[in-house]
Design a protein around this nucleic acid. Structure first.
Lengths: 194, 194, 194, 194
DNA sequence: CATGAATGAGATTTCATTCAT
DNA sequence: TATGAATGAAATCTCATTCAT
């Protein structure tokens, strides 16, 4: 008895191929740089034809966009995980720890990621992503600082984000020597004291 | 009988043209990205021929390297200005203030500078520069933290650099809204307390 | 549903295009010189795009190398055809006759071939080929001369090769007036006389 | 008392500069190839400016032509030195010896020389030179063979030239291993025996 | 859905030659 | 006569993308 599953199966195959291409592209973009990674190289490593890549992604830039978008998402899931807009001390700790776990998991990728979002050539697209991510994050952080009775919660929130980025930046540039644990503690102490 | 230009005249022409090319290249590298800025584009904007660029710089990469190297130098000048390896509290204040003065003086430039050094293909070269600049800076900062009786001066020094970069980064991305003065105070208080 | 070409079809296309490009390149290299023949010119004459040439040959130099290598091969086929390392008198005669048959069959080609291999920049590569071709040939010729009881077989072998090349060279430069048969006889008499 | 020699002195200086440039160009053309030797490189090695080269030679090609023309002359001086149209046995010996002395004196140059004259792009120019050199040489050689009571002097003359070129060719391709003396003897024996 | 030959636009780079000084 | 900055044309090569099959 043959079940009419072909439709669904095709869809699954499609999704798997897309994921395959994205993973390989990510790896190559990260290790060799976006510009120096040709579609040819991606196709060869994925053991498919060049043409097929275009069957799944409109263009090379399109492929990049999807990868970056996925990258941003990695952070949203670990910030205020229950999405109630309120950051507990535990959630604050969890977020900081997870941020660095994420960075550690693929340093090269995040280095690329940071580099790309600063190139204003892709800025129009990146800007949407930044606003999408940062504006709720900012609101929640303000609220967190208020609850800490900070004199100037808005400045503290802003300062926190800057510190986090700076530390993240230094960490991905030199992951082996960076005293990550000690610095994580300093951040947590500084921003959650009283 | 018409005499050729003197050596001095030639030297001046060379220096001026080099500067012109570097300035325009920086602007374009920063706004459009290194790879997407062609030598053609640089030449056109500088109103010279493509070929002339190669009279002054061995290659496109060479041009980039010199630009980056110059950028790094700007900071060394204001750090421990008497170069005695000892950072007084005043010098520490001065450094922090000057860093942001430098950044404010040409926000666009520094946005581009950061963007460029993050493009990973450049990384090998950037690493050399980082070591060149950061290792004496780091030593002096360690010494500064020790004199502050810090529990863990090395970590504090590192943390300081990360914080400074993060704040600088956020500042140049949004100089108009960033509460710079307040945050400068937070940094100074945090690292010079006791 | 349209199927992609089979592997065999692709292989045939590749082989035909490669041959086309090689033939046209040879003609141009020979008549205008290697350096003065641009890939553009080759592509135009072959009625294909510049880019396609690079689909088939890694570089201009690569194209040249393959052409030269093929030329050398033509001679190995007729030398000691059974490849037993022993040259009988008949095989010796056969070789000399075939060399000139090959040359006569496409005088223009061989004139060009000689022209190319003498261009000095090509020399390093030609040297490899010469060693590849000449060293077994030389061994077999030495052996041949020894069996002729020559006083100095190595020198005779070398002399023979030089004479053959000189005659071949003069022949292809002026095939219509060159007294080929008479000179072939002189060579055979000189080198196979007891 | 100042003598009015300036005119003549200038002429001498001019001639010396021309010779300097030609010698350096020859050296570079021979060692690096005509195409890969830039006017810049020649000027630098001659310690003069690029512009000055054009003061002495109309173009790079012009410089080459003069060098090549000088090359042809090298052979005419050693062939039938008294220019009486009659080649004695001693003159025949002398010619063969001198040819190889000349070749040995600058192997690279002669390799270049052979390579260049075979490129049809310079052929028009070279052809004149060849006719100028070869046609009296050929006549004199025929006469020489006749006096040797050769059965077919014309063929012998032609064969001789071919052999000489073949040996010269092999010699310049591998000057270090080529058994030149032995082969010179073989040529002399073969062509001057009774 | 899959292939890879083919295109074409553009990138970097080199260099003979000119020209103001 | 002498300089070297400047030009401009052309060369090699790369690659995202298309398309016939």
């Amino acid at each position: 008895m043959i079940m009419p599953r072909t439709e669904k199966q095709y869809a699954r195959i499609r999704e798997e191929k897309r994921a395959l291409i994205k993973n390989i592209a990510l790896e190559l973009f990260a290790s060799e740089g976006y510009y120096y990674t040709s579609i040819s190289k991606i196709a060869k490593k994925a053991a498919i034809s060049k043409g097929l890549v275009y069957n799944y992604f409109k263009s090379k830039e399109d492929l990049l966009k999807e990868i970056i978008s996925n990258g941003f998402d990695a952070f949203t899931v670990v910030f205020d995980p229950n999405k109630d807009g309120i950051l507990t001390d535990d959630e604050f700790d969890y977020f900081i720890n997870e941020v660095f776990n994420i960075l550690r998991s693929n340093t090269k990728y995040w280095r690329l990621f940071f580099g790309i979002i600063l190139q204003s050539i892709v800025y129009d697209f990146v800007e949407e992503q930044l606003i999408r991510i940062l504006s709720p994050m900012s609101k929640t952080l303000n609220n967190f600082m208020e609850r800490k009775n900070a004199d100037d919660p808005a400045t503290d929130a802003r300062f926190f984000m800057a510190v986090l980025d700076g530390v993240a930046f230094h960490y991905i540039l030199d992951p082996d020597n960076f005293p990550l644990e000690k610095i994580k503690n300093r951040i947590i102490n500084f921003f959650t004291r009283c």
